[in-house]
Design a protein around this nucleic acid. Structure first.
Lengths: 335, 335
DNA sequence: TTTATTACTGAAAAATTTTTCACTTTTGTT
DNA sequence: AACAAAAGTGAAAAATTTTTCAGTAATAAA
């Protein structure tokens, strides 16, 4: 109601701030006490925050990397980034396990009653399921989004992962009873006519959250290791075409753009386009080999939650060839 | 929805805190982002504050004494204390002026449209009015609560104060056209029969805020100085009875209890009991001589807003003969 | 001076946050 | 293992805070 001198204003600012933040009075009580209007108190507090009379600090306990998370989230338009501290950040196996554990916690934290959970495949996801504490969520639904990998007779990995997960959650389960990749396109169309397979495919649009591993095309990757899934020659072809890695056997380049090829047509599983329709795609990956792929996946908006380790996170935030920003409109739906 | 490990909980706490306090997301946005329930986010923030992850500091600019104010308010159940920094805290005259200025600011800040303002008398109040910036508050009402002091022909001070104040506020004015103290009780009853005087008295219960000076019975006080108001002998009598000072010529002791006497019966003005009925009584006083009286007034709950200087404030907070607390139920109504 | 612009106000509306409540899960105890 | 107690949960209600709005006062410009 009045015109105040700067000094008097300062005193009022300080006083209101103290009463609010130190004495925990409500703004109403302060208003009564100091004979101000409700709005004035609110505005005063706002001003005090702006001017710096009120200082709010959030301290991060050691072992947490909220700044890295924050930067990743901002830079790549992520819904959330989870960065854990790795004890052996260069050891692919160790990192995968650590990240898998973090992913399990993340799942536990974010799981909702009617979630339809798409699961791909990979070491990290495997560790995730291994680390997951059992929890009854009967209305959830686990859906396999890529066929079991490797030769038909070995089609265990992806399928198994889903089965174990569904068991831990005691929830519904839809498997994709097919190999992840077949030898000829014709075989694929035959398989796709199977009603079970079709059933899984039809569920893709209903997936509310997908957990995906991210593959790097290195010689020792599981993909190539024993030649059962892809040959080194095939992978090389893809690399020549610009591939930096894959999500559920869908290869993509530096910018997350899909790389179509003969190989792609032989894959039985969700497409990158379909994956992009999923509201929440959680990428679970870390370790030195994954940096390049992750960068592509992030740039292309193929994932919108990232679970990784602090070293990988740091690398993903390095200037990167003069920071080409993630392309607008290609990001997954967020809200 | 989930059971979290302590480490994971820490991360969540930190993350939520950062998003809320550093990114300024709403709890709703955080909920969407982190897939938590609205309540959970609120509780998490509460917890983070409790645990100390979030630290809120209010820094007081130099020259302000929010701690002293706070302590005074708490110790003496005050609605508000205003402590200003005095440049010459031992010089009664200087302090009075400084405090008067502070009181003017306080009035400007808290003045409301329909306030009925009771005004007593004193050096500090005089400075207050002198320092007051003009401000039109036509519905306010200034009421003189103690007769003009001294001999009838000198009855200027209190009256004048009120008149000047009313002019500055361009508001209604009710004077108490009588001396503050008369020679004989009989004279008083005659005066009280005057309709103007009665009018002022009838307004006392409607006073919403009273500004009162606080008198110390020292030889150089204006009260005694020229012998026009009280003689040293009269004052001495009061001191013997335990008086530490007065508010509007109503003397009281260490604990703010009124001291009744022949003198008291000759005073024309508000009584301490009536003053106590006033929702807000602002005591304006400081300087070395006022410490003892102020202590009495504060202990007795005779005032519930105090405007003083930092040295006096400090003295008022000294242990005081093993801190007899202000007596409950004797305090003025606060809300 | 008068006028136009800007800033500021309090009340009410809208938005946000906290608490309550009814219920479920976990944990500790017999 | 069965049970009771305690802790934790989300939805809704209640409380609190912020913003909007319409109007007023202060300041700047003419």
């Amino acid at each position: 109601m009045a015109r105040l001198t700067p000094a008097e204003e300062m005193r009022l600012l300080t006083k209101v701030s103290k009463l609010y933040y130190e004495e925990n009075l409500t703004q109403d009580e302060i208003m009564a006490r100091l004979h101000l209007s409700r709005s004035k108190v609110s505005r005063l507090l706002q001003q005090a925050r702006d001017v710096g009379i009120i200082k709010i600090t959030v301290l991060s306990p050691p072992g947490l990397y909220p700044e890295l998370e924050r930067e990743l989230e901002t830079r790549y338009h992520l819904q959330e980034a989870v960065v854990i501290e790795s004890r052996q950040p260069e050891a692919q196996q160790v990192v995968s396990r650590e990240i898998g554990t973090a992913a399990a916690h993340y799942m536990l934290r974010t799981l909702e009653d009617h979630d339809v959970i798409g699961i791909s495949w990979g070491t990290a996801l495997s560790h995730m399921v291994a680390a997951l504490q059992p929890r009854r969520v009967p209305d959830a639904h686990v859906v396999q989004i890529i066929g079991g990998l490797g030769k038909p007779e070995a089609e265990v990995h992806a399928t198994d992962l889903c089965r174990r997960l569904a068991q831990l959650l005691q929830c519904k389960l839809t498997l994709l009873p097919a190999p992840g990749i077949v030898d000829h396109e014709q075989v694929k169309s035959v398989i796709l006519s199977d009603s079970h397979v079709r059933h899984a495919f039809e569920l893709f649009p209903q997936i509310t959250v997908a957990y995906v591993g991210i593959g790097a095309p290195t010689p020792d990757s599981v993909l190539i290791r024993d030649g059962t899934i892809l040959t080194w020659q095939e992978v090389n072809e893809l690399i020549v075409k610009g591939a930096v890695g894959d999500i559920a056997l869908r290869f993509f380049d530096d910018n997350g753009h899909p790389i179509y090829s003969e190989i792609d047509r032989r894959v039985i599983g969700i497409s990158l386009e379909q994956l992009r329709q999923v509201r929440r795609v959680v990428g679970v990956a870390g370790g030195p080999q994954k940096v390049a792929v992750l960068r592509g996946a992030l740039r292309g908006g193929l994932i919108n939650v990232l679970i990784t380790d602090h070293v990988t996170a740091g690398r993903l935030l390095e200037k990167e060839h003069q920071g080409i920003p993630a392309i607008k409109g290609e990001t997954n739906v967020v809200s």
